[in-house]
Design a protein around this nucleic acid. Sequence first.
DNA 1: TCTGGGGTCCTAGGACCC
DNA 2: TCTGGGGTCCTAGGACCC
Length: 423
Amino acid sequence: MMALVDCNNFYASCERVFDPLLEGQPIVVLSNNDGCVIARSQEAKDLGIKMGTPAFEIRELIEQQGVQVFSSNYTLYGDMSARVMETLRQFSPHVEVYSIDEAFLDADGLPGGSEPDALLRWGQELRATVRRHVGIPVGVGIGPTKALAKVANHIAKKHPQHKKVGVFVLDGHKREEILQNFPIGDVWGIGRKHAERLMQQGASTALAFTQLPESWVKQHMSVVGQRLQRELRGQSCLSLELVAQAKQNICTSRSFPDMLEDVELIREAVSTHASRCAFKLRREGSCAGALTVFVHTNRFKENEPQYANAQTLLLPQASADSRVLVRAALRGLDMIYKKGYRYKKAGVIVSKIVPRLQVQQDLFASSEENSRLMKVMDSLNSRYGQEKVRVASLGYAKDWRLRREKLSPCYTTSLAEVLLVRG
DNA sequence: TCTGGGGTCCTAGGACCC
DNA sequence: TCTGGGGTCCTAGGACCC
């Protein structure tokens, strides 16, 4: 058996942990530059606020209903996530961190046994402990496969009868009955396109999907659909991934709060994105063999001239050195930047990623690599703050940096911002 | 006025090899 | 008119996830 633990309304719940007055209030958390709604408390969902809605479209509703608004604070959410995951490790020796707010746990061989009742108690204990230790409410779904654990989790969070308990165990006997009432569009791995297609085929429930001929599923949904079909039938095809794999691509990109024409500012932004990609590579112990830089104008401004382009450069030798990647990114930018457009977004993607210790040396390249310098830089920055020591071209201009007007403090990661309790 | 930022996997088809 | 058989590698594009 496998358990899926999923934090409820994670970002909104993180904000709530540090301000009890927010209990019972509608909360939304906005994307970078305070653009779109990316998280909502239950109360905000009940007001009909949809995921991805631009903030300006619901300005009135926010005022009328007293919705509490936050800029996203990934430093806070990342740290809270780590605390949740740490707590989960007390409940199972095998934990796969699936996303910032979700984890799969091996629920076999638990001390209490694998009977449905025992699993239910285990789930409740887990849920209460996370709540007590970290302050975050979670839902727990338990089933024979990952896909069925996802179904169970959905029921634990949405079903009126099970919501209060917050834990649902989907054991073999109940499988068909539950899948019969489970809409196909809510199934993990079925997106909008496949949901439409399946409805046309008459498969509007998860159960009906499991009953379609495998050949049809293979033809229209590839082996991915086939695996999902088997998972829902109770045959495990997706195992726990206990060790996070090194990434194959790493991307750092941002929209600008306002549109930008000045190439110097865009160069600062691109330098910063490249340098952050380099940092992410070093943190993983990887190097990148190629780098792509891209820019585009604002696609929502239909009456303005539009331009989008990207340039990929192969590096002579795979690298995670900020200076090397920044230089490559600026060279790429020079190749695609066109004067006269107002740019909205720029980004850098690194690819052809290899482990640091497997980098193919270049016989003819003069090695500019100096990993010791990068190590010193990283340790200084971890002590004194992000980018205190940096490549000069990252600059200091404020114009292109994020707009975050409703940012909460970094309660758990910055001594200066620790919550003050008055006696 | 204002519209996010990351990722993965799979397949088909082209270019190439012997 | 007829035109082999077996591979690999790479990329773009689609679909999905959080």
